[in-house]
Design a protein around this nucleic acid. Sequence first.
DNA 1: TCTTTTCCGTTGTAAATACAACCGATTTAT
DNA 2: ATAAATCGGTTGTATTTACAACGGAAAAGA
Lengths: 224, 224
Amino acid sequence: MKKYISILKTTKLFAGVSEDEIGAMLSCLDARLHEYKKGEYVLRQGEHLNRITVVVTGELHVQRDDYWGNRAIVNRIGVGEMFGEAYIAPESGAILNDVVAVEDSTVICFDVRRIITVCSSACRFHSMVVQNLFFAVSEKNRTLVQKLGHISRRTTREKLISYLSEEAKRQNSPSFAIPFNRQQLADFLSVDRSAMSNELCKMRDEGLLTFEKNQFHLLSGGLV
Amino acid sequence: MKKYISILKTTKLFAGVSEDEIGAMLSCLDARLHEYKKGEYVLRQGEHLNRITVVVTGELHVQRDDYWGNRAIVNRIGVGEMFGEAYIAPESGAILNDVVAVEDSTVICFDVRRIITVCSSACRFHSMVVQNLFFAVSEKNRTLVQKLGHISRRTTREKLISYLSEEAKRQNSPSFAIPFNRQQLADFLSVDRSAMSNELCKMRDEGLLTFEKNQFHLLSGGLV
DNA sequence: TCTTTTCCGTTGTAAATACAACCGATTTAT
DNA sequence: ATAAATCGGTTGTATTTACAACGGAAAAGA
């Protein structure tokens, strides 16, 4: 556990908290370490959640498969990111999606309920963590709205443009890598992979962008 | 302002706070009342937000129109509900959507930043409000994920089924009213109105449900 | 009351999508 | 090193959707 404290320090959850202080909080947050192999389920739809989980190595996807096998990727959780913040409020209900390791992953989960509900002066940095949590949920909220903006577009091309331009803006460059392969991107945008692949190539042929694997480049005169 | 305190008391923001205490907090939260006519913009995409707004009469839509006139309704804010919670964190950026009054509406907005960032003991109920805010953002988060679940479905029918079943579950009855007319529902689900209308009638003819105006009834053997 | 506007179902057509199947290239596993 | 699996592009077809246009009914406004 100790060796991951430097990673924890970089997370939104522990922003503004020193490594020593994180170390001191671990027991009071009942921190537990778990490991998952690629493809393993961290959590399944319908389960109840009372812990926040931070990824320290690997990557998780929040996703859901419907009856017909269509997968929808709601979110990806990379190193230093977390999930479960939105479910620590009482009566949050069951989670709506599966959480799956898309690579071999290590996570640390925390029982943060006690520091939310009891007086925040129990530990000196509790109130800081509570505020961090609030900001983190807020940010995830804005991310979800942004994602809604992508998939509420009518056509595959519009969805791609919406997503890719935002990613370029976020990474502050017309050249950037995306954290998905083709199938995952299709699942993220809720479209068919082959249709999307087709559309991407059309866009490339029209001079809007170039790409190789997961590296994209938006061309001036095209999308930027 | 005073006359709306009874409504404020029912909101998620002031849960657990008495009317007297709300009254005392109004000035410290710099509460301001605003009125909007049906169709008026409360906020436009690109603006920056630093206040939380609670609806006390009427109804707002959080929505966005694209270049071609396609409208996407992200959320509706009814009486007692609020918006802006996710933007009080510093560096939240500009809001991504418009907020529009779909009926004549009255809102009260608050400057909650000070109670988030400064020590929460300034007022006795500040910490309660902070916690309420956190829970509210969490709940909105879960709602957004649920909405993502609807519109990530591939076909109009699946989107309708996803939305209507959830609404039945939420209202705890196979018979329920929805807060949208047809055009609004189509914008909410990001589909074409006429195509959706068509699909609804097909579903009715197939015996899955009945409806009249915004009143729906899911039939056993059909969707329930 | 009369007019105007909104609402919602209907239809036909063009466009876009999903789906399945295939294949070569690359990566991973044995 | 070889086999197996994954990945990504391509194509054709059936399905689904968007779009435009229309009209009757209901609601809103004058």
